[in-house]
Design a protein around this nucleic acid. Sequence first.
DNA 1: GGAGGACGGTACCGATCGGTACCGTTTGGC
DNA 2: GCCAAACGGTACCGATCGGTACCGTCCTCC
Lengths: 188, 188
Amino acid sequence: MAVNARARLLSTAESLFYAHGIRAVGVERILSESGVGRASFYRHFAGKEALVTAVLEGRDARWRAWLAERVAAHGGHPLHVFDALAERFSAQDYRGCVAINTMTEIADRASPARGMAALHKTRVIELVEGLMLDAGVPEPGQRARQFALLMDGAIVTALREGTPDAAWRARSIAEALLAARPAVRNAG
Amino acid sequence: MAVNARARLLSTAESLFYAHGIRAVGVERILSESGVGRASFYRHFAGKEALVTAVLEGRDARWRAWLAERVAAHGGHPLHVFDALAERFSAQDYRGCVAINTMTEIADRASPARGMAALHKTRVIELVEGLMLDAGVPEPGQRARQFALLMDGAIVTALREGTPDAAWRARSIAEALLAARPAVRNAG
DNA sequence: GGAGGACGGTACCGATCGGTACCGTTTGGC
DNA sequence: GCCAAACGGTACCGATCGGTACCGTCCTCC
């Protein structure tokens, strides 16, 4: 029982932060639910902020690995990112994207947590760009950033609606985007 | 100095909540920065939560009035919502959408604050649907929901990037959407 | 078998949280 | 001129915040 205190802290904190938000979860609660002693916590992390960034870092890696795996399972086309999102949106305890929630909750742009959240989004865009390249989509960089905007819009919408509908809505928009002529000019 | 305590509370709270988040701003700070006495606050509001919902309600009305005015100033076409957003995104103290921030910060779906935030988004969609009708866009309800997803995606992206670029990105996607054939089918 | 490191538990710290009670003052209407 | 409502200021409440210090215990490795 006395092993892996750090791993238990990270796991418990991730669940609590995701479910309730960062500020809403005190160190006391993380300690009691993880069964880790107070001193042990401060031996592993400089403070709550260090725990937050470590949680975000782990979440980033695991979430991208999950996305890549699900997209591949659906066929590997960039559009399949929305099929992957739809799977998550159906969860009844769905609470959106940890990185987005961190950016909206933590106002200080210079905080390490904000940095990790921004880094996550950058890496997701890179992942989507790789999918674009594999699929032979022209202008993969621009397309990836457009898809990322659609993904974020879908995530926020799903958080509000509580249904996977937003994933299909975003997917249909993405389909129209890929079907459009290379250069679409001012319509308004 | 002794008048309009309620109005001062709402104004100060709105600024502080927007800049730092709801949980990050204590009642004490709202009182000191507004110059309102502690007792006066609890005479006007049942508690902090009531203040939050009142702030969100006022913000909703003012923001939609602002959006309608700016869209009209740009020409009145639904696509002009993104030109309006671009104006906001340029602000260096831009902190995103209060409703989105509330939905990500407050986990409890049943809370009054979450209800107000969701209501705001519904009303914005209705506003955009009205613009679609005026512009003669087919399937205005579906289009309005698609535009709302793009607006939310742009807002979150702008909060991360700190530039108005996301507004133009969302606008180009919306243009492709309106230019697409009525029914786009599975591309993946 | 002894030593050292990792651990859980607890007491404590100052600061702040949201909220209540009571104070004296100011102000506007009759 | 007087009274009542609205106001600002302050003291106080229990609870919780993030963080520090010290305790005894267990487990491992030599």
